[in-house]
Amino acid sequence: MVPHHRFSARRLTNMAQKVPPQGERQTETMRVKRGLAEMLKGGVIMDVVNAEQAKIAEDAGAVAVMALERVPADIRSDGGVARMSDPAMIEQIQATVTIPVMAKVRIGHFVEAQILEALEVDYIDESEVLTPADEAHHIDKFAYGVPFVCGATNLGEACRRVSEGAALIRSKGEAGTGNVVEAVRHLRSIIGDIRKIGQADRAELFEWAKRLQAPLPLIEEIADTGRFPVPIFCAGGLATPADAALAMQLGAESVFVGSGIFKSSDPSPRARAIVEATTNYMNPEILVKVSRNLGTPMTGIGMDDIDVHLADRGW
């Protein structure tokens, strides 16, 4: 049992952003947590299940790797309970690559998060791709020094995750399908509502907060600044360079690619092509060049053919 005061102390430092005496180093602030997300912008975060794949991802130009036990396509086909990865596997990946290493915990499973923090992973993904541990509560993410990324299908969900301490949001899409349609739906919903709130008058903000079930101060911040307080990346179903460029043109600031790389016929060139497409997402000539001769992408499945919609997990 972790003593409660540890959480309270962390929480105060994170929320109050006290300025310490000069020269003193302050770790784990929201600025430091969001700062790493800023560094990952315009990049590709790749799902990997072992050190060998992590090396391929790093060599292909990934900005970070996401360590998990099975890629979402396999979680989907195998069924059963999907959990945090074996620490030994995460340690092997950390020993193999120099780029940031992220790992997933089940929604609400704050002990898996304590374990990942003790392993000093660089980002924790509280992810709907794993089987939820709690059907009402997400993790209190202010209690940790490691920053968190969380999925969202709409702006309300994104705001609720930020109010719990998430330093990065990714649109959920539908992981393990190789089908970009849900990612597009979620991104359009999130980015579209940010645009609309930017145009709303003061009285309308109360109604936005109510409709989105989001804290009013966050809605007010979006209205004042015209942008979301943390970066927004895209995940779930991206399989080609064109998919990555589509997400970027729709307003995502980086992309997560899961099954799309290591479930394709030739992962390494595809990974490199998706990296180049993410940088040059506005340049069709380069998109032509990098899309050529990549072999077979993952097969993919239609939304009507899946039994479990992972994106529905999260509250």
Partner: peptide, 10 residues
Amino acid sequence: GRQLASFEAD
């Protein structure tokens, strides 16, 4: 060091 050691300072 890793992200946990990232910091701000004057």
